[in-house]
């Protein structure tokens, strides 16, 4: 699964690079518009190690932000699914927050929280928690009638049991969304760094953009892609293991 993710990314990345180079040579474009192979290779040797450090810094924020998003989405999702009035208020708030472009909200966040880790984390969370929240709400408000019927009929239906049933039955869906939101966590972190922070790969991309240095940006995108694929692959593998252990255990014991 992990190897597949990496192979898929490499295939897409080099296809895109091939497309850019084809365009460059077909239209006779300068290295300023699209860097040549030599310029790309030079950028890679010069910048890969530096960008890797920046990327690991971003990845740290993305991981932490993703974990906090999961907790937040679970907490808010559970609250939202418990009471109709509170639930609809939370849903409305979540939708409203989501409609704000993060680049517009970011300056306010940086004024309130400064330009340290907290701001980067909050922006990451804002970008990636929404799909998690919506999935949690949809899972927790959708009855699993063929399992819950017995517990309701026999007066055993407790809220915690209902949550357990719904989470368990939708484990595949939840794992897919958790893994998918890892990409969003990475995007959120990069956006935060791009908009305001002074560290991380997003900040490096912004600097390269200021100098119209596409070769450097391509190196940064390569590293971002590789590490996001690894993160995604690890989450998917972990998800598959969890599903195997809990949902489809081999043999009857």
């Amino acid at each position: 699964m992990l190897a597949n993710r990496l192979l898929q990314f490499l295939l897409l990345y080099f296809l895109a690079i091939g497309g850019l180079l084809a365009m460059k040579y077909l239209l006779g474009l300068s290295d300023y518009v699209i860097p040549g192979v030599a310029a790309m290779a030079t950028a890679f040797t010069e910048m890969a190690a530096i960008y890797l450090g920046d990327l690991l810094d971003s990845l740290r924020v993305a991981l932490l932000g993703h974990a906090l998003s999961l907790l937040l989405a679970a907490g808010v999702g559970i609250l939202a699914s418990r009471s109709t009035a509170l639930g609809s208020l939370i849903r409305a708030a979540a939708y409203t927050v989501q409609t704000y472009p993060i680049v517009a909200v970011a300056p306010i966040i940086f004024i309130l929280l400064g330009d340290g880790l907290a701001s980067r984390l909050l922006i990451t969370i804002l970008v990636c928690y929404f799909p998690l929240l919506l999935t949690t709400i949809s899972v927790l408000t959708e009855p699993v009638a063929d399992i819950e019927h017995f517990f309701i009929s026999t007066g055993r239906n407790r809220w915690s049991l209902q949550v357990a049933i719904r989470l368990y039955e939708n484990m595949g869906k939840l794992i897919t969304v958790v893994a998918g939101s890892a990409t969003l966590a990475m995007v959120g972190t990069i956006v935060a760094e791009f908009v305001a922070a002074d560290a991380g790969i997003g900040f490096s991309i912004r600097k390269a953009l200021y100098q119209s240095d596409l070769a450097h940006i391509l190196v940064a995108l390569f590293l971002v892609g590789i590490w996001t694929s690894i993160y995604l692959g690890v989450l998917e593998t972990a998800g598959a293991l969890i599903e195997k252990k809990w949902r489809n255990p081999a043999g009857g014991g």
Binding site: D146, I147, H149, F150, S153, T154, A164, I165, Y168, E169, W246, R247, G252, G253
Partner: peptide, 15 residues
């Protein structure tokens, strides 16, 4: 009065 039907399932995390 209890009602049961043939497509009911048990929670999957218990034997």
């Amino acid at each position: 009065v209890l009602y049961t039907y043939n497509t009911e399932r048990l929670p999957g995390w218990l034997t």
